[in-house]
């Protein structure tokens, strides 16, 4: 490491670095480019980097949410706009719920030590292991016949919250352990009750952990397809579900599909660029100590 790096690194390493960045980002850039192309440009055999960019595909996807009339489409299909709203609501609410509930649970587990850490890490691992496909049958059955919340946003929020909770508790636990207990004792001396200590003293100190947990939770709720597909009806469909539904065997409208895919990918991409450090911390904490 340090000893070897006193001399400047070989340019070949930079070439490798660039190649890896290109390989990793290439498909995403290609999707972005395609979403700005007319179908004529997509199909033409001379296609490449030279084309007239157009936002028509985005207009088609979001037609009912725009403040102006879109000329190039005859009939506006509101499916996607509605799904976008559903996705936003479901992902935001379930992230908020998961964080609040997960935080409290993590705090109790760390500070009151009435359950072994082993139990928690074991449960976390077990839950991480359960694939959504396995939950498909029981969740469909229970949500439909017992809870009666199939086809509602509530139903989706509940299952996403449950799916994310173990991981969030686990991540937050590792951050709460680092909060010095003296701070809390001081707050208690000043007459704060446990709830005040938690919300006013502990929470502000674990913001980085909360950020990481929030991003992971939002990502799962925002990206999930399988359970969304089984539970949602026409009015509560989320974006991944509408995208898959609009995929047909032949004659795919690539421009529009890529535009919708891009819209689905934008929030995670923003998070990545804003908070890559927290994401990496969360990823390594979740895996290395898992």
């Amino acid at each position: 490491m340090a000893a070897r790096d006193t001399n400047a690194p070989n340019p070949a390493f930079y070439a490798l670095l660039v190649a890896l960045v290109v390989m990793s980002a290439g498909p995403i850039v290609l999707m972005l480019a395609t979403s700005f192309k007319l179908n004529v440009d997509i199909m033409s055999s001379t296609a490449g980097l030279f084309f007239m960019p157009t936002i028509q595909n985005y207009e088609t996807a979001l037609c009912d949410m725009l403040w102006y009339e879109v000329e190039h489409i005859r009939r506006c299909d509101p499916t996607f706009g509605r799904a976008l709203v559903n996705s936003l609501i479901v992902a935001t609410v379930s992230t908020a719920l998961t964080l609040i509930i997960g935080c409290m649970a993590a705090y109790a587990l760390v500070r009151f030590r009435f359950m072994g850490r082993d139990t928690v890490s074991m449960t976390t691992l077990m839950m991480r292991m359960v694939p959504p496909a396995v939950l498909l049958v029981p969740v469909f059955g229970i949500w439909t016949f017992q809870y009666g919340i199939d086809g509602t946003r509530m139903g989706l929020i509940l299952i996403y919250t449950a799916m994310n909770l173990p991981f969030v508790v686990w991540i937050l636990q590792s951050f709460i352990v680092q909060v010095p207990i003296q701070l809390e004792e001081a707050a208690r001396m000043d007459g704060a009750n446990p709830f005040q200590t938690f919300f006013l003293v502990v929470l502000p100190l674990i913001k980085p952990g909360l950020a990481a947990a929030a991003i992971f939770t939002f990502r799962v709720a925002w990206n999930e397809f399988l359970l969304g597909n089984a539970l949602a009806d026409r009015n509560s469909r989320t974006v991944p579900v509408t995208i898959v539904n609009s995929l047909t065997e032949y004659d795919i409208d690539w421009g529009v599909i890529m535009a919708t895919g891009m819209l689905l990918a934008v929030p995670p991409i923003i998070f990545t660029f804003v908070a890559s450090r927290q994401i990496i911390t969360g990823m390594t904490a979740g895996a290395v100590k898992g």
């Binding site: 990793s24 980002a25 498909p27 397809f225 991944p240 895919g261 689905l264 991409i269 990496i280």
Partner: peptide, 16 residues
């Protein structure tokens, strides 16, 4: 950049 493929929806990865 390396985190991007893991962060975006699997549906979108499939599409690309």
């Amino acid at each position: 950049v390396f985190i991007l493929p893991m962060m975006i929806a699997p549906i979108v990865v499939g599409l690309m």
